[in-house]
Each structure stands twice: as structure tokens, then as C-alpha cells.
């Protein structure tokens, strides 16, 4: 996984609550068996005027001029600012893949849906939950070319005016993200503990460890 330490990037404001994963990446794109290449289809139904299908060449498609990410001043934005309950809906990791592939590294909102929030950390994306008041003040401050600096190590956001905003992040997730660590490697370092758990559990619940767990084909 790509490590995240700090960035200074342009902010794109998306003034909407409950932006769901179906909107972030519509289901027709979930048919892909690849992990990359979802960026051009991010927010597909809102971003383009036509209906998108997987493998389409997006450079030829008509853009929706009213859609925020299509505005000139938000090109190359690295930080997305949104409202409550961002990422609600499905567990599809294609949602953070698409956001990351598009170029976002940080998401700021008053709250995130749990599964989505978790998925972000696995993909080098930092979701930051701030109080609704602070998010609102950021929306109000925002002018063309507005940039924020985000430092994960010190857990602070710095505005162009020099205002520092502290944010919370789970220490375990922070450590993994800062170092770009592979979760599976970390867990496999505890293989002995997992086996010990299985041995003990097998005494209490032997049926879970019998052949009957496998459906015969």
C-alpha cells in the first residue's frame, strides 16, 4: 500500500450529504476484475451527460459542466470536502479505488460510513472526520485555488490563513498508513496466536473444525 505522510493540495468542495458508494462508482464498473483504472469513472452518472459503461474511452464523453469536479478550478484537487455520512451504501472497495485513482488522498467530512471509512485506510486514502461546524467553516472559507496542508504524523490540517485544525485517527491505522504496511504480513506475524486460538476454540466448538464445514460439490 502507498504510504501517506503529508500533503498540501487543492480542495474540491462537494456540498452534499449521504454521498453513497453507488454514486461514487456505479455498479456497471464493478464488473472489472482489475484493481486500477476506476478514476475516469468516479461519480460517473453525475460527471458525464451520457451513460457510462466499463472500458469506455472517457476522453470522448460529454462532461456535465455543472458538476463540481469538472470545474476548472478543481482540476488536480487532492482533497475532497463533503457533508455527513460520506460513502454510505455498499462495501465495494471500488469506491476508494476510484477516489484514489482520480487523485484524491484525503477526504474531509463530518462523518463517514463505517465500511467505507475502513476501506480507505487500506488504499492509502486518509478520511478525516471533523465536527459539522468545522466542515461548514471550511466550506465557507473556500475560494478558488484554496489549498489545505494535511499532516498525518502530527494529526493536523493547516489552512492558508495559518489556522491549525487537529483531527483524530486510530493509532493502529495511523501507523499502518504512515508506513504503507501490508496488513496481511502484520497479521501473519501472529500466526502462532491464531493457531493457539483455533486449538482452544476447537475444544469448545468442535463442529467448526470438522469436515462438515465444507459443502460437498
Amino acid at each position: 500500500m502507498r504510504a501517506f505522510t503529508k500533503i498540501t493540495a487543492r480542495v474540491a468542495p462537494f456540498d452534499r450529504a449521504n454521498i453513497d458508494t453507488d454514486a461514487i462508482i456505479p455498479k456497471q464498473f464493478l464488473k472489472s476484475i482489475r484493481r486500477a483504472g476506476f478514476g475516469p469513472y468516479l461519480f460517473d452518472e453525475w460527471r458525464y451527460l451520457d451513460h457510462g459503461e466499463p472500458e469506455m474511452d472517457c476522453s470522448q464523453r460529454p462532461l456535465n459542466p455543472d458538476f463540481v469536479l469538472n470545474k476548472a478550478q478543481y482540476q488536480n484537487a487532492g482533497i475532497l470536502l463533503a457533508r455527513e455520512n460520506f460513502g454510505c451504501g455498499s462495501s465495494r472497495e471500488h469506491a476508494p479505488w476510484a477516489l484514489e485513482d482520480f487523485g484524491f488522498r484525503v477526504l474531509i467530512a463530518p462523518s463517514f460510513a463505517d465500511i467505507f471509512y475502513n476501506n480507505c485506510f487500506k488504499n492509502g486514502l486518509l478520511p478525516i472526520a471533523l465536527s459539522a461546524e468545522i466542515v461548514d467553516s471550511l466550506f465557507k472559507d473556500l475560494t478558488d485555488g484554496y489549498e489545505l496542508s494535511v499532516d498525518l504524523e502530527s494529526q493536523t490540517i493547516t489552512t492558508p490563513a495559518g489556522r491549525e485544525i487537529a483531527f483524530d485517527v486510530d493509532q493502529n491505522r495511523k501507523f499502518r498508513l504512515l508506513n504503507g504496511l501490508d496488513d496481511i504480513d502484520l497479521t501473519l506475524q501472529h500466526a502462532e496466536a491464531i493457531r493457539a486460538y483455533e486449538t482452544e476454540r476447537a475444544k469448545r466448538a468442535p463442529w467448526l473444525f470438522s469436515d462438515a464445514m465444507t459443502a460437498k460439490v
Partner: peptide, 15 residues
């Protein structure tokens, strides 16, 4: 529900 990274994690570690 879990995401795909966690699907891989569960396959590899059962945890």
C-alpha cells in the same frame, strides 16, 4: 460486510 482488501486478509489469515 468487508471490502476486497479484507476479503484477501480473511482468505490469507482467517482473521
Amino acid at each position: 460486510g468487508i471490502g476486497t482488501s479484507e476479503v484477501e486478509h480473511v482468505l490469507a489469515t482467517q482473521c
